[in-house]
Design a protein around this nucleic acid. Sequence first.
DNA 1: TATACTTACTTACATAAAGTAACCTTATTA
DNA 2: TAATAAGGTTACTTTATGTAAGTAAGTATA
Lengths: 114, 114
Amino acid sequence: MNQSSVCPRFEKGMRIVSKRWAGLIIHQLLKGPQRFCTIETALQISGRLLSERLKDLEHEGIVKRDVYPETPVRIEYSLTDKGHALAPVFLEMEKWTSSWIELDEEPAADPLTK
Amino acid sequence: MNQSSVCPRFEKGMRIVSKRWAGLIIHQLLKGPQRFCTIETALQISGRLLSERLKDLEHEGIVKRDVYPETPVRIEYSLTDKGHALAPVFLEMEKWTSSWIELDEEPAADPLTK
DNA sequence: TATACTTACTTACATAAAGTAACCTTATTA
DNA sequence: TAATAAGGTTACTTTATGTAAGTAAGTATA
């Protein structure tokens, strides 16, 4: 007896996309195909988690991994159609954050201590 | 030196909304103000986490908590303007999930064992 | 009066996920 | 020969989540 009133597809979609880092990775890939280390630097995520999350997203059919056997090998991650279809979600999210999110004041960068 | 290329507001917004359960709670409250136990039942979330997450969201100015000193006391959670402003995000998310998410086949419900 | 019930939580504890740092492999360059 | 780079993996610590039981205030019931 399932008394949940939430659409199970919506629940599943949310679980995939709202997993820690997943949204930011997809958002980053909406800018175009990118290599592992580019994403790693852009998001300041650890290799361990990036690797894990890219595998998850590939498994969900959202991210595609292409190997270019150059030397040195180049591996590019990009979005599938399913991944690109998320663009409107992130567009609306960008609108919301730019209207409603204000940053905590961070201590002014001090070149001596930071 | 911050070499991250991601807009910090976007990052912060994502961190708030994509925290486990937060999205589903907001989505649920978009249907209208609701009491604790209604959300708990609808989402099948534990009281412990629901309580914690509602406090987070209240702290972020997304959720409002109203106490009606009836007997027994009634406490209603609802969205603030900031919370309501997330509606388009969830609308796009709903479109995406209905187009692209398919459910894993779950074992046919057996009234004797389930 | 004692017991039980309801809502809205909180506490205690086990498990899972995330974060951090060091290491690996293949190849390239100094 | 040593150092550097990409794309990871392994080992370990910390934090978050899940689960179950307990609490407090206010009825309602026996």
